[in-house]
Design a protein around this nucleic acid. Sequence first.
DNA 1: TCCAGGGCCGTAGATTGTCTACACGACGGC
DNA 2: GCCGTCGTGTAGACAATCTACGGCCCTGGA
Lengths: 115, 115
Amino acid sequence: MKLEREKYRNRIELLQGTLDMLILQTLQWGAQHGYGISQALRSRSSEVLQVETGSLYPALHRMERQKWIAAEWRQTEQNQRARFYRITAEGRRQLAHDRSKWETMVAAISSILEA
Amino acid sequence: MKLEREKYRNRIELLQGTLDMLILQTLQWGAQHGYGISQALRSRSSEVLQVETGSLYPALHRMERQKWIAAEWRQTEQNQRARFYRITAEGRRQLAHDRSKWETMVAAISSILEA
DNA sequence: TCCAGGGCCGTAGATTGTCTACACGACGGC
DNA sequence: GCCGTCGTGTAGACAATCTACGGCCCTGGA
């Protein structure tokens, strides 16, 4: 599947490495399924954070393997089958870690940009 | 060259996509060579931003190809041959673009983290 | 009745930027 | 002469993201 170079010009909508943190934070507000997570991120960020399914689902599976989140099949309000995720204790630890690393990073970069 | 998984655990010191912006910003303060850029980033960020040579030089070459920076061999104060880079007009445009994208991104992520 | 659109999950492969790990030369001080 | 620091560079591993698909279920309207 050979793709045009041009199509990849505007890649990286999300700053690499922040997706896990954003998902964990979303799950802090309550259990949610993948589609719901992406909707929540999108609306709460005024449409800025648009997570593609090719990023989202692999991330969820990765995080489930790492036991940061736990999953369960349930019905949605629309009466559809969906995989609901909730954050685990380990996930909360990870979230705290990610947040502090993020703060450090933003502070460091700001110190360059505002010098 | 098969490497141990463990060694890659703590990767991504830099948020992916920010390196170009940081280099351009550094060059705004005056022409500088690669080694100097990495020292500047490191010291101005209180040792947080540590750019590896394997990231730095490819980035510089990339940016030179894109004409965001221009290069010239000169002597350092230590009387060593070094490749000095300066930012171009196009580079300044790119920097402005990167900065605004960065601000948008940080604001969006903050809106999630602080909700 | 059926079909269009939205909700919902998923994977394959391309691409890129980062990292680790190495090699090399020049210079200055001991 | 040798070692530490200055300074440039490359090869290959790796992970996260994207594009581009495919597929199922449900509901409402033609």
